[in-house]
Design a protein around this nucleic acid. Structure first.
Length: 428
RNA sequence: GCGGGCGUAGCCAAGUGGUUAAGGCAGUGGAUUGUGGUUCCACCAUUCGGGGGUUCAAGUCCCCUCGUUCGCCCCA
């Protein structure tokens, strides 16, 4: 039609939905504040190299989903819109020497992420995450704390029917041993696997475990478990994390086939899923990444974190709650040149006194303006016609009771406290 | 990249080859002078995402194209 549309996989967040976003942000902020996590804001684009090295060349995210382009530098510089939050935070941690500041850095962030994928339910090209990263502790309590914060946020928003899947992917050595065992097991079945899995057999066999192909799943069911290949330290760490979660009263299920898509994970890996989300069931995913900081050129620093997908969270919230109702105090109705001018001033002054006030600009019949006042959800209506304008007065009408009184404009502005009390009462 | 669904007004939506394209919401004007969450009336798509074709006749059938949506892959 010639109308310019938002690009595929991007969405406008319209005013009627924004209350969900504000609600999520305020709940998360509060919970993170209580745990003394500090907010960090990093650029939404970074050197492409950061993600290649951090996330791993072999991953799908890096291999086919990055928004990468050259900027105008000479020579051209390859730049990528961040596909996830951890790499940027770790880069800042290293570059700004945050490790030197204190033992442990507890950080959180929120903002847009970008992946060039085909959009579907719960998946966009620009989407938003809220995430945490704890840098500088290998203690299982850090894993448990971070998981507890995630469940706390989700529960505080009223979500139920969530599953916490937990696994350990061990350290690189454990994983190498396991990988070999897995390949040994799967190779005889190679012809029966789905084509994607056949491909992965040599490149990324762990990923075969969570294939959705039925036959592949049947085969994977009897595959060796990573949990039988954990070394002593890995096993102790994993046991401890489980114990701590139990102590905290957080329910989880061990899922030895949980494999996460980014290369940097070590030891703890977890996902929080819902059955109400269609194909993209994961609301929160995370884990430990003890090797990443070192891999990106920083001092060896153990770390653990997660990210919540805000759009997916909102999909769940929409099924449960409706957004908070309007909180408009006054709707100002006016007609006639003089009255309209006075109405504007009155609205302005009331706002300065802390009231929320909407002014009807239409100039249409009072009847229509009242109908709009009603729909606006305002507690009271202020009416200014020619009579009121002539006498510098205004009619104050309480919508719920239909009671109406004439009052001098100056007097209305004097009785703030009384008005505030009445509005509170009528709203309750 | 691959597969399926859908595309009629600002929004929701009927319509499945035959004169002027239902209805609802929203919007605008009105039902005696300035009072809403009731009612009633009028107005609001020369046109069915776009292009081509079949036919005496197409929103309705066919082809192409664009958009959108769900799924695969993968992830938040």
């Amino acid at each position: 039609m010639g109308v310019i549309q938002a690009l595929p996989g991007t969405r406008d967040i319209l005013p009627e939905k924004v209350s969900y976003w504000q609600w999520i942000e305020s709940v998360a902020r509060q919970i993170l504040h209580r745990a003394n996590y500090q907010e960090i804001r990093t650029p939404i684009f970074e050197a492409t190299e950061l993600f290649k090295r951090g996330i791993g060349e072999a991953t799908d995210v890096v291999g086919k989903e990055m928004y990468t382009f050259n900027d105008k530098a000479t020579p051209p510089r390859s730049v990528t819109l961040r596909p996830e939050g951890t790499a940027g935070v770790v880069r800042a941690f290293i570059e700004r020497n945050l490790d030197a500041q204190s033992g442990v850095q507890r950080l959180w962030y929120t903002g847009p992420m970008f992946r060039y994928e085909s959009p579907q339910a719960g998946r966009q090209r620009q989407f938003h995450q809220i995430g945490v990263e704890v840098l500088g502790s290998a203690d299982p309590r850090a894993d448990a704390e971070v998981i507890a914060i995630a469940t706390d946020i989700l529960q505080s928003l009223g979500l139920k029917n969530l599953r916490l899947d937990l696994n350990s992917v061990g350290n690189p050595e454990d994983r190498q041993n396991y990988r070999q065992a897995l390949v040994d097991y799967l190779t005889p079945y190679k012809e029966e696997l789905d084509p994607d899995s056949q491909n992965r057999l040599s490149r990324n066999p762990l990923r075969i475990l969570d294939s959705k192909n039925q036959r592949t799943q049947e085969i994977a069911r009897n595959a060796p478990s990573i949990l039988d290949y954990l070394g002593t330290y890995s096993q102790q760490h994993f046991d401890r994390v489980q114990q701590l979660l139990t102590d905290l009263g957080i329910e989880y299920q061990i899922n030895p086939r949980l494999v996460r898509g980014l290369d940097y994970y070590t030891h703890t890996a977890f996902e929080i899923q819902s059955d109400d989300l269609g194909a993209q069931a994961t609301v929160c995913g995370g884990g430990r990444y003890d090797g990443l900081v070192g891999q990106l050129g920083g001092p060896d620093t153990p770390a653990v974190g997660w990210a919540i997908g805000i759009e997916r969270l909102i999909m769940l919230l929409e099924e449960l709650q409706s957004p908070p109702a309007s909180t408009l105090d006054f709707y100002v109705v006016s007609r006639g040149e003089q009255a309209e001018a006075q109405a504007l001033i009155l609205a302005y002054k009331l706002r300065q006194s802390g009231f929320s006030v909407e002014l009807d600009f239409s100039g249409s019949a009072f009847k229509k303006q009242f109908a709009r006042a009603d729909r606006s959800g305002a507690v009271a209506c202020l009416i200014l016609g020619e009579e009121e304008a002539a006498s510098q007065s205004v009619k104050l009408k309480w919508m719920a009771t239909r009671e109406q009184q004439a009052i001098a404009q100056s007097e209305l502005l004097q009785m703030q406290d009384e008005l505030k009390r009445s509005i509170l009462n009528l709203r309750a």
